[in-house]
Amino acid sequence: MNINQFQQNLIEYAATIGIDKIGFTTVSPFHELKNRLIRQQELGYASGFEEPDLDKRTHPELLLEEAQSIISIAIAYPSKMKNAPQSVKGARRGIFARASWGIDYHTVLREKLAQLELYILTHIPDARLRSMVDTGELSDRAVAERSGIGWSAKNCSIITPEFGSYVYLGEMISSIPFAPSEQMEDQCGDCSLCLDVCPTGALIEGGQLNAQRCIAFITQTKTMVPDEFRAKIGNRIYGCDTCQTVCPKNKGKANLHQEAFTPDPELVKPLLLPLLSMSNRTFKETYGHMSGSWRGKNPIQRNAIIALAHFKEEAAVPTLIELMLHDARPVIRGTAAWAIGKINTEEGLIALKKAEKKEQEEQVIEEIRKGLAFYTIQN
């Protein structure tokens, strides 16, 4: 078989099944990436969600016998939402980041990669293939950059000329010697908007992120949110888009063509109060198809409480009092206590004093006292 011709056929087939971009690279080790990852670990900037074995992350040949190439794919997702509901007093809303709009991208990209695998195996039955999306060993961004999908930007995203940085990435290691694509030149230039506006200063410098300070990471943790980040979270209940929305390369990139990622406005910009009383079962039934549900309802509910404090939503106080006094989860009780103090009603003050006498968990007592301190400061 003529591999060059088959590669062109594969590119054309990918377009017919809804893959927006496809590129190819070798299985040569990612030496520069390894040095960066070592540095990230030394500085304590890693999130902890990554594959811990740096050799597996940077040596594709270790992941598949007879590996000769990597296929990288990108699928665009929307940056705009039609008929977005308004957040108003008495009916405050949170927001899921764009990467959680529509169907979980892991599901969609795995299906596309499975279709590519079937196409390849139909024509080359003895081909060896291994696909991965996000949770695999390889760095999706490093593979995409070397495959010519886009350039690695200062905001640590891959930016494509066609779709901006609003693209999901996946890859397939292959035993077929596909010709590598040409890499794209960095086009960020002197622009530093993403670094300048990052709410928590998580973007240390162009291309270097302290994940421990990134709101997208913080909203996925399950512990108490550190004080310094609570005001920064605002009404975000999953993820953060700030470094993308300010990027000039994303201007005018609506990317509305992938129906799987069309957002349901009521789900991606949900009312906050109903989230607080949602059972695990209802949460899974309602949000289980979205990537933002992967950590379960607890972080979402904690973030919703922080959002209600951000809005100083007095209508939420009775519900927050109920959580503070009776919820079994210390993180929820504590966050509710802090939020009650931020909202600062007389009803809340009485409840905080009651909770201070009743609470046994030291972590929660600390949050109750923070809540009480707001009354001293504000009154």
Rank of each mutant, 00 (worst) to 15 (best):
H326A: 08
T319Q: 10
R281K: 11
C214N: 11
T219A: 10
L323T: 09
N280C: 13
P299S: 09
A316V: 01
Q212V: 15
I218K: 11
I233D: 05
C247E: 00
F261M: 00
A309E: 03
E228G: 10
T245H: 02
Q220D: 15
I237L: 10
I233C: 01
N303I: 07
C240G: 10
G296F: 07
L271G: 13
A211I: 13
A337F: 01
E266P: 12
L272P: 15
K251F: 05
V225T: 15
A315R: 12
T319G: 06
Y238E: 05
L272S: 14
R230G: 06
T223S: 15
K269Q: 15
Q208T: 14
N210A: 09
F229A: 14
I233P: 01
I332H: 03
S291L: 08
Q208D: 15
S293F: 06
A309V: 05
A315P: 07
N235H: 15
Y287E: 04
K253W: 00
N250W: 00
M278A: 14
E313Y: 04
G296D: 07
I343C: 08
I218P: 09
A231R: 12
C243P: 01
H326Q: 11
I343S: 01
N235L: 13
L276S: 09
P226F: 12
Q208I: 15
L323D: 04
S279K: 13
T221V: 14
P263Y: 02
G239A: 07
W338Y: 11
I215T: 07
E285M: 10
N255A: 00
K342H: 08
L275W: 09
